[in-house]
Amino acid sequence: MVSAMEIYQLLPQAACKECGYVSCMALAVALLSREKKLEDCPSLFDPKYADKLNKLKELLAPLEQASETGLIIHDEKCFGCANCVVACPVNVANDPTGSAIGLGPKSDKVILVIENGVVRCLNPNECRRFGPNRILCNACTATCPSKAIEFV
């Protein structure tokens, strides 16, 4: 999992404020939450930072796969156990006769499903971590035996 500190260490640390933030640390946090992009830091595109820019691109690449809620699925770690599918409160509420009671989902309003042996995210907008009234629900990550799901 990428940390804001790792991102910060690769930024110019010039306090130029061109991105609109007072410090590079603040920008690092914004990059992590995907509110800002690398292009928002013009200094970074100075050739002397080329190495750092490349490293940052590498570091932030996984974040691009994240859904709007910041959910990333690591297929290679997933057991396909469906603990997350069954524990997700939205799945439970929207699918009382399927995932709520441990079976495969019967509703198309669920967020998490198991396909080809691994978990997949549908309808991310339904996730409790989405939208202005979001809460930091962690039902899916807390029930995962292998850290196959994370939020960034």
Binding site: F79, I114, E115, N116
Partner: peptide
């Protein structure tokens, strides 16, 4: 496509 198979079942 297979739905609901775990990794072992897959």
């Amino acid at each position: 496509k297979a739905k609901n198979l775990c990794r072992k079942g897959q």
